[in-house]
Amino acid sequence: MRVLVTGGVRSGKSHHAEHLLEGEASVTYVAPGPDETEEPDPDWALRLAAHRGRRPAHWTTVETADVATAIQQSAGPVLVDCLGTWLTRTIDQQGLWEAPVDEVTERVREEITRVVAALERDHPVVLVTNEVGLGVVPAHRSGRLFRDLLGETNRQVAAACEQVHLVIAGRVLVL
């Protein structure tokens, strides 16, 4: 089973994704958030604490931007939360925010391909992502770049999944 859970910010995506795996004996929770060497963000820390507090104690958390390797090395079910933070961290680590669009796109596509290939496994994988592009065009290049690349990431990952769940206001629509 491979499921992509998408929706807006604070729509209930993470809670729904966790619910999909709640009966599993062990789950590897992959959190590709900000690099631990960066200056701590108190808002981010509160969000992480809330997520950790919700998860069963027998789940293992792996904080890494190398989502593909984390999925491949897991012996059981995996939950990745979320592809939007993974994309941001990937672009940050490779210093690509100011690079030409085709260079950024090419390098990000290589990473997307690695993630999609890692989904070919016997154990369940649930991935959380943000749905972007439903509103105004971002005023800044970085916002447009992120929107376009996350849209491409979501399309490619969705194509590799058996199901896509859209979460809006805590309600789930299976697409």
Rank of each mutant, 00 (worst) to 15 (best):
H15I: 14
V27M: 12
A25F: 12
H51P: 05
V67Q: 04
V167Q: 07
G8E: 06
A160W: 04
V128M: 02
V101W: 13
L20H: 10
A118F: 01
D43S: 14
T61F: 02
R89V: 13
E106M: 15
R2Y: 07
V157S: 03
L87Q: 02
V3G: 03
L134I: 11
D148Y: 09
D81K: 03
V80S: 00
P124K: 07
L150E: 04
T64Q: 10
V101I: 14
V116W: 03
L145A: 08
V62T: 11
T28I: 02
A118W: 00
V5S: 00
D81E: 12
T28S: 04
R147H: 08
E98P: 08
A68I: 09
H16R: 09
L4N: 00
D92P: 05
E152G: 09
Y29K: 07
T60W: 05
A17M: 06
A49T: 13
H16F: 04
E131A: 06
A99M: 08
D41K: 06
E24M: 13
F146D: 04
G143S: 00
P124V: 05
H165M: 07
T113D: 15
H51G: 07
P77I: 04
V78M: 02
T28E: 06
V62Y: 02
R114K: 15
V172L: 00
R54M: 10
L79G: 01
A68Q: 09
E22I: 14
Y29P: 05
Q93Y: 13
V125E: 01
E24K: 14
H16G: 01
V27Q: 13
V137G: 08
E111C: 11
P32Q: 13
A169W: 03
